[in-house]
Simulated scan of single mutants.
Amino acid sequence: MYEEMLQYVKNCLVTNNGDEGTKVSPFPFRKRSDHIRRVFMWAQRLVEDIPSINRKAVLVAAIFHDVGYSVSSDNSKHAKNSAAICKKYLAENGYDTDFINLVVYLVENHSNKRLMREEGTPLELILLMEADLLDETGALSIIWDCMAMGMQEVQTYEKAYNHILKYSCTQLNENPMITTKAKEFWRKKQELLCEFVEHLSFDLGL
């Protein structure tokens, strides 16, 4: 079921958005469908030991959360567009109204990260937003910084080091996670990044 949904979302992005990345990002190595699959992976990890939630709704929402970019590259509209595509897909495939309403709510609100710290926010939405934030941080963010530097005309190790300090390190300054497991994932990313930067600085004699 999930693989069918992932393939459907990828087809939407490829069909309507060319290479599913360059219209919304200056980095051609970043693909929306790859991001979606990784957010789905993070969601699987986060919901694993939480019995009191609708796990299926979180996982389905993770799959559909960014499909709206196939309609428009406008970041401010992608959540609403994603929710509309998701609602249509679930309705056409026989899902019940309560489930559809929950998943659509999660998709439509996943970008509103301030809700993570507001009282009354459903745990399902918090988990979805945590999964979204956990992607492209830590080790993957370092790779992103290095690949971005590789696209520039002039490249040096020191420029890559400074780029990592400016982007990857700044991104992990604080821990925005709410659930215990997500906090621990984020903490490990922070530790890895600090150790990497320390070794790189030492190797460069900075």
Score class of each variant (00 low, 15 high):
residue 49 D to Q: 07
residue 73 S to C: 10
residue 137 T to M: 15
residue 204 L to T: 07
residue 40 F to D: 02
residue 204 L to W: 02
residue 179 T to D: 09
residue 77 K to Q: 15
residue 52 S to G: 08
residue 135 D to C: 12
residue 55 R to N: 14
residue 182 A to R: 01
residue 167 Y to P: 01
residue 40 F to G: 03
residue 167 Y to H: 12
residue 20 E to W: 00
residue 51 P to F: 01
residue 65 H to L: 06
residue 154 V to G: 06
residue 170 T to C: 11
residue 203 D to L: 14
residue 147 M to C: 06
residue 90 L to Q: 05
residue 102 L to I: 05
residue 101 N to I: 01
residue 15 T to Y: 08
residue 68 G to D: 04
residue 128 L to S: 08
residue 92 E to Q: 14
residue 99 F to V: 06
residue 7 Q to I: 05
residue 50 I to F: 02
residue 15 T to V: 10
residue 30 R to D: 02
residue 141 S to N: 15
residue 4 E to I: 12
residue 133 L to W: 08
residue 203 D to M: 13
residue 156 T to I: 11
residue 25 S to E: 02
residue 17 N to G: 15
residue 93 N to I: 07
residue 103 V to W: 02
residue 119 E to H: 07
residue 9 V to D: 01
residue 84 A to N: 13
residue 115 L to H: 00
residue 104 V to E: 15
residue 151 M to K: 12
residue 35 H to R: 00
residue 180 T to Y: 05
residue 180 T to R: 12
residue 13 L to A: 03
residue 84 A to C: 05
residue 176 P to S: 05
residue 202 F to G: 05
residue 142 I to Y: 03
residue 72 S to W: 08
residue 104 V to H: 04
residue 181 K to T: 12
residue 190 Q to Y: 10
residue 195 E to T: 13
residue 95 Y to V: 03
residue 128 L to W: 10
residue 80 K to C: 06
residue 182 A to Q: 00
residue 94 G to S: 07
residue 32 R to G: 00
residue 87 K to T: 05
residue 153 E to N: 08
residue 48 E to S: 10
residue 44 Q to D: 08
residue 3 E to V: 07
residue 125 L to P: 10
residue 19 D to P: 06
residue 47 V to P: 01
residue 186 W to V: 04
residue 172 L to V: 01
residue 53 I to D: 00
residue 173 N to R: 14
residue 69 Y to W: 09
residue 22 T to V: 06
